[in-house]
Amino acid sequence: MHVQAVLFDGFDPLDVLGPLEILYAGGIATNGGITVELVSAEGARDVPSGLDLVTLRATARLDPERDGLILVPGAAGATEQGDPEDDSIPSRIARTQRTALPALLSAAMERPGSTVTTVCGGSLLLAMSGLLKGRYVTGHHDALDVLWGLGATVVRARVVDDGDLVSGAGVTSGLDLGLHLLEREFGPRVAHVVEELFAHERRGVVWRPTGAEPAHI
Rank of each mutant, 00 (worst) to 15 (best):
H140A: 00
A143F: 10
A143N: 07
L144K: 14
D145S: 13
D145H: 12
V146L: 13
L147W: 10
G149A: 04
L150A: 13
G151K: 04
A152R: 04
T153A: 12
V154Q: 05
V154C: 03
V154W: 05
R156Q: 14
A157N: 02
R158C: 10
R158H: 08
V159D: 02
V159S: 03
V159F: 06
V160A: 14
D162P: 07
D162Q: 05
G163R: 05
G163V: 02
D164Y: 09
L165C: 02
L165K: 00
V166Y: 08
V166C: 02
V166G: 12
S167C: 10
G170V: 02
V171W: 09
T172Q: 00
L175E: 04
G178E: 01
G178S: 09
G178Y: 09
L179K: 08
L179C: 11
H180P: 07
H180F: 14
H180L: 06
L181Y: 04
L181H: 03
L181Q: 03
E183R: 14
E183F: 11
E183H: 03
R184H: 01
R184Q: 01
E185N: 05
E185M: 11
G187K: 01
G187Q: 08
G187W: 06
P188N: 10
R189H: 12
R189D: 15
R189V: 15
V190K: 01
A191I: 06
H192S: 14
V193D: 10
V193M: 10
E196Y: 11
E196A: 09
E196P: 03
L197N: 00
F198W: 12
F198R: 06
A199L: 14
H200S: 09
H200N: 11
E201M: 13
R202W: 04
G204K: 02
V205E: 15
